[in-house]
Amino acid sequence: NQASVVANTLIPINTALTLVMMRSEVVTPVGIPAEDIPRLVSMTVNRAVPLGTTLMPDMVKGYA
């Protein structure tokens, strides 16, 4: 099973992502692959992402 990116904290809308905000976890449904974490750093989220939420491609500006 592939690990996905999961919010390690509440990420407010329009926040630039940092490494400490994200962790990898095997979850269903599958979200952004964990190997993309380095690429996500400094990208911003377009909605509030609660703790434990899987990051989906449409949640990160410029990812999809």
Rank of each mutant, 00 (worst) to 15 (best):
N46F: 06
T44L: 08
A16K: 11
E25N: 10
A16W: 06
V49G: 01
G31P: 01
L17H: 00
D36P: 00
P33F: 06
E25Y: 07
I32E: 01
Q2W: 10
Y63G: 04
N8P: 00
D58N: 14
S24T: 09
I37R: 09
R23M: 06
A3S: 10
V30G: 12
N8F: 04
G52D: 14
K61T: 15
V41G: 01
M56S: 15
V5F: 02
V30Y: 11
P50N: 08
N46M: 13
M56A: 06
V5A: 08
M43P: 01
A7N: 01
Y63V: 04
R39H: 09
T9Q: 10
A16P: 11
P29C: 03
M22H: 01
I32M: 03
L17C: 02
L55D: 02
P12E: 15
Q2R: 14
I13D: 11
V41C: 04
M59Q: 04
M21E: 03
M22I: 14
V27G: 03
V60L: 07
P38I: 10
S4A: 02
M22V: 06
M56D: 06
D58C: 05
P29M: 05
R39L: 11
N8G: 09
L40D: 00
L19P: 11
V26F: 09
R47L: 11
L17I: 08
D36L: 12
N46P: 03
T15E: 10
A34E: 10
V5D: 00
S24D: 08
A3P: 09
N14L: 06
V27P: 00
P57C: 04
V27T: 06
N1A: 14
M56K: 08
N14V: 03
T15V: 11
P29I: 05
R39S: 15
P33W: 14
V6M: 06
V60R: 01
P50I: 07
P33M: 08
I32S: 01
N46C: 04
M21R: 03
A7K: 02
E25P: 00
I11L: 05
D58M: 08
S4D: 01
V30D: 07
E35H: 15
I11G: 00
I13A: 11
P57R: 09
N46W: 08
P12A: 14
E35C: 06
K61F: 14
E35M: 09
T44E: 14
E35R: 14
V6Q: 03
A16F: 15
A48H: 12
A64F: 10
V45W: 00
M22Q: 00
G62C: 05
N1C: 05
V26C: 04
I13H: 09
R47Y: 13
V49L: 10
P12N: 15
A64C: 05
M43D: 03
G62T: 12
S4C: 04
N14F: 13
V45T: 09
L40R: 00
V41H: 04
Y63A: 04
V30C: 03
G31Y: 02
V26E: 07
L17N: 00
L17D: 00
M22G: 01
I13S: 13
Y63T: 03
V6G: 01
I13Y: 13
A7Q: 01
A16L: 14
L55A: 01
V60K: 00
T54I: 08
K61I: 08
V49C: 04
V30I: 15
M43S: 04
P38V: 10
A48G: 08
T15H: 08
R23Q: 05
V5L: 03
S42G: 13
A34V: 08
L17F: 02
L51T: 12
L55Y: 00
A34K: 09
P33S: 14
S24E: 10
V26G: 05
L10D: 15
D58I: 09
P57L: 05
V45S: 07
V6K: 03
R39F: 11
M22D: 01
E25I: 10
I11V: 08
T53A: 14
M22W: 02
P29T: 04
M43W: 06
M43G: 03
R39N: 10
I11W: 01
S42D: 09
I11R: 01
L51V: 15
V45A: 07
G62Q: 11
A34I: 07
S4E: 01
R39I: 14
K61M: 15
T9P: 01
V49D: 02
P50A: 14
Q2S: 10
A64P: 15
L40W: 02
T15D: 04
P33C: 04
P29Q: 06
I11C: 02
P12R: 07
Q2A: 07
N8K: 08
V6E: 00
T54W: 02
P57S: 12
L17T: 00
P57Y: 09
N46T: 15
M43H: 08
V27K: 12
T44C: 05
T15R: 07
R23V: 13
D36S: 11
N46R: 08
A64M: 15
A48F: 13
T28K: 12
D36F: 11
V27I: 07
M59E: 03
V49I: 10
L51M: 10
P12G: 09
L10I: 10
L55I: 15
T44F: 14
Y63H: 04
E35I: 11
L40Y: 02
A64W: 07
Q2M: 12
M22R: 00
M22A: 00
D36E: 12
D36V: 07
P12H: 09
L51W: 10
V60E: 00
V6T: 08
P12I: 06
M59F: 12
I11H: 01
L19G: 07
I13V: 12
